[in-house]
Amino acid sequence: MKMACHKCAEKAVIALQHGELCKNHFLSYFEEKVFTTITKHDLLNRKDTIGIAASGGKDSLTVLYLTKKFLKKHQFPSRFFALVVDEGIAGYREHTLKDLEMFCKKQQIELKKVSFREAWGATLDEAHPKINKDTKKKPCTICGVWRRSLLNRHAREAGATKLVTGHNLDDEAQAILMNMFKANVGLAASLGPKSGIKEREGFVPRVKPLYFCTEKETRLYAFLKGFTVNFAECPNAREGFRIAIRDFLNDFEGRYKGTKQSIVNSFLEILPLLKEKARQDTTHPQACERCGEPARQTVCQACALQEVLHAP
């Protein structure tokens, strides 16, 4: 039996909590949801210069395309560019980089590339065994710390006042549960459509236009728009706490539609209180004494990891 769109009776491509949608109504619904998120949560303004963190996956291609479309639709004069970090993960990043380069060329979007090797002196594949030996840190931990540092530094150096990321509803629901299960209230305060707790010198605020879009909706949008997204799986991403939470959430969502949305909506109710609590903590230094990037300790985590890497 074919499901029909509840708006026009055309063949449906997705069944959402509020009804089925055909291709055209789904594309409109998705774009409107992203544009409303940007406007309602004041993610971008006319004076912004915008860096867009990109990888070549479905989320970043979608957010690149829709940020460009939003700016055009609202006649924002903002300069924007894509920023990609090559971590040096063999068999993975080279594929997504190729997709991203093709996409940016087609869409006429400026693409800036930075790499772990240039910044830290080694690829992730080279750095992980050495750092892990001394600290037991997993590749995803090292990658996350170094990526965030490079994205912030290079976005700021290129004049960006906002850094757009492709985080979606699934990412956020997973992060909320992970922080809850690990009692990381301080980290939870940094979540939300607009990351960060208070303005800090040198920190480019990160914003998430796909905040209310599920991963499934985003993949469907990318497919229906004909974006070339070749699935490539990071060899480091097969295990871990996040994957257990992801599978648990997908199982629950299958049985109780709207679960992820409810988790995020509930969290947004208490987020102002978490941010207020975090703002009262003034014990952290403002900048790393080595690199000058925003830091919670006197030396930022990125520099601390680099020190371990290059220790004799």
Partner: peptide, 21 residues
């Protein structure tokens, strides 16, 4: 969609929703 009826000899593609990173 999930309630669509399949036919004999259909070729079905499953696109991964989950990001690989």
């Amino acid at each position: 969609t999930e309630n669509e009826i399949l036919n004999d000899n259909d070729e079905i593609q499953l696109l991964s929703v989950i990001s690989g990173g």
